[in-house]
Amino acid sequence: MSEAIWALKRICSERDGRLGLAFTIAILAFALLGPLVSPDPNVLDIKARFAAPGVAHLLGTDNLGRDLLARTSVGTRYALTLAVLIVVISSVIGSLIGIVAGVAGGWVDRAVTAVFDIVNAFPPLILAFALIALYGKGSATFVFLVTVVFIPQFGRMARARARTLRNLSFIEAERMLAVHPVTIVVRHYLPNVAGPIIVLASMNLPVVIAFEASLSFLGFGVQPPKSSLGTLIKDGFVSINQSWWPTITAALVLAVATLGATLLGEALRRVIDPKSAGAR
């Protein structure tokens, strides 16, 4: 706990860190509180379509008269939830695979690295289209495909760390004392790998948010009536002659969310992993 407070203080001690934290808190508050102060995001009111921002609808309405505050905040909540879920799943799976590969070495290491290379060889959007064609659209498919894309990133980092640790004397000593490999992994590898993985995870959050918005913009992400920042931008874009605010609002929220997460991730990297931060 004290380490977390120490990290928070360090983040707040620099301008970018403060800005990232402020943006992230604002977006979290918007995602959590927005739906509480606005109507049902899926209720249609055809007569009120394209209503300008006002008392009844603080951010106006879309082409079917749905409240934009509600839809944008629900879309933001959806994007954040997916981003956190994907980053957690891929970092856990990727770390475990990477550590196993790094510790085992030999053919296991070569096989894992080859699989990572294969996955990385596909451009993420092309891979996404292929998987969507196979498994259909929807949140589950999205989580699955982005997780698949991100696992190699975490895996490579964990593997590299594990290979470095493997030859250190204290690990050698534990092996000589016949300590069970699982115990060594839990006691030494995981704590040493966690720092960079957390940094990488925080850096990947905005990437997932933007990726989800891109897929939804193209019609392959969240399906109606649910809203996402990508569908809101797309719907607003096609109706830009009738009303500009749906696009601007959703784009602004997306920009703040990704910028906040990026700045916060960078600040976290400087705090947790100053060596790599200095190398940028």
């Binding site: 899926n42 209720v43 249609l44 055809i46 082409n63 079917l64 109606p224 009536p225 719907d235 096609v238 109706s239």
Partner: peptide, 12 residues
Amino acid sequence: ATSLAVAQIVQA
């Protein structure tokens, strides 16, 4: 856009 709007009204 038009077809999707029809679809969402039908859905609702």
